[in-house]
Design a protein around this nucleic acid. Structure first.
Length: 286
DNA sequence: TGCCAGGCCAAAT
DNA sequence: ATTTGGCATGGC
């Protein structure tokens, strides 16, 4: 438990009501990558605010502003209503049983976008590694010895591609650099995207280097509260083909997309995240 | 060791 | 309009 900073000042833990919430599940589900287990909870950053958070039953204890924490973890999302919207089939039911209490959180747009640009053809553990390297080398420390903010677009825009490659980004370095420079130059306004309808917002995001339909949907879902957005990665595609299109041939990407949007409905992003985490957990060695 | 990973993009059908 | 090959790196 976090009791001291370097200054030895005790940091009071403030309570946040959090019914229908599972913190560990939410942070471990591959939607956010920088939180580190510490003591009884997790240390991380909510934008530029350092935060320690632990769960005690139906509430959280945190060093940060409770309202900020409640908003970040989307404690206002109506989980019972969301669950009622899920399709009634055995695959969805199993995922729900496994993931009950997981929430789709509200991440700052830039760090979510940048992180998912680096996620292409990478395992979750390595996405986290890249995030930590970028933060450690180019981000602003938030207090002493604690979490570090994600480097702003302007900071990354000033780097050379080799410096990003040195963070084990591989071919993704070029994409991240080009996108950082577009954002820093104001060629695309991430805040303005928030007021666009889903399809237009997605199209805008796809103008950026390293952003296709899948990454755009992740950003829409995890940063722009578009809980209908349904990212289809290799895991979800496997789930769809094996359980919803079993034995059928010529199942195109288009067909998968159209089916998912109709079948999983207005909270499709939640359904997707539950299916994703359940499938991925099952395939990892127990 | 070889295969896979929260893909994207340009080139070739 | 759809399919294919290339791209870097690390875990298992």
């Amino acid at each position: 438990m976090l009791r001291h900073q370097v200054s030895r000042q005790p940091i009071p833990l403030r309570p946040v009501a959090a019914p229908e919430f599972n913190l560990a599940l939410t942070l471990g589900s591959g939607q956010v990558f920088h939180w580190l287990a510490q003591g009884e909870g997790y240390m991380g950053a909510i934008g530029a605010t350092p935060a320690y958070v632990e769960q005690r039953g139906q509430r959280l204890l945190t060093t940060a502003d409770p309202a900020l924490v409640a908003r970040y973890f989307a404690l206002d999302h109506p989980l019972p209503e969301i669950y009622r919207s899920f399709p009634a089939d055995p695959v969805m039911a199993a995922a729900l049983e496994f993931c009950r209490g997981m929430r789709i959180i509200r991440q700052p747009a830039w760090e979510c976008l940048a992180t998912f640009i680096t996620s292409s053809m990478k395992q979750v553990a390595h996405i986290a590694q890249i995030s930590h390297t970028l933060r450690a080398r180019y981000g602003e420390p938030l207090g002493s010895g604690g979490p570090v903010a994600y480097p702003p677009a302007a900071r990354l825009a000033a780097l050379r591609e080799e410096e990003l490659r040195a963070c084990a980004l591989g071919y993704r370095a070029r994409n991240l650099l080009k996108t950082a420079r577009m954002i820093a130059a104001g060629e695309l306004d991430l805040e303005a995207i928030g007021s666009l309808p889903d399809d237009q917002a997605r199209a805008e995001l796809c103008r950026l280097a390293g952003v296709g339909e899948k990454v755009a949907n992740c950003v829409l879902l995890f940063a722009y509260e578009r809980v209908r957005a349904f990212p289809i990665d290799v895991w979800i595609e496997r789930v769809l083909r094996e359980h919803y299109f079993r034995g059928k041939r010529k199942v195109t990407a288009r067909r998968l997309r159209d089916f998912s949007r109709k079948y999983f409905g207005e909270f499709g992003g939640y359904a997707q995240q539950y299916l994703f985490h359940h499938a991925r957990s099952g395939h990892r060695r127990a």
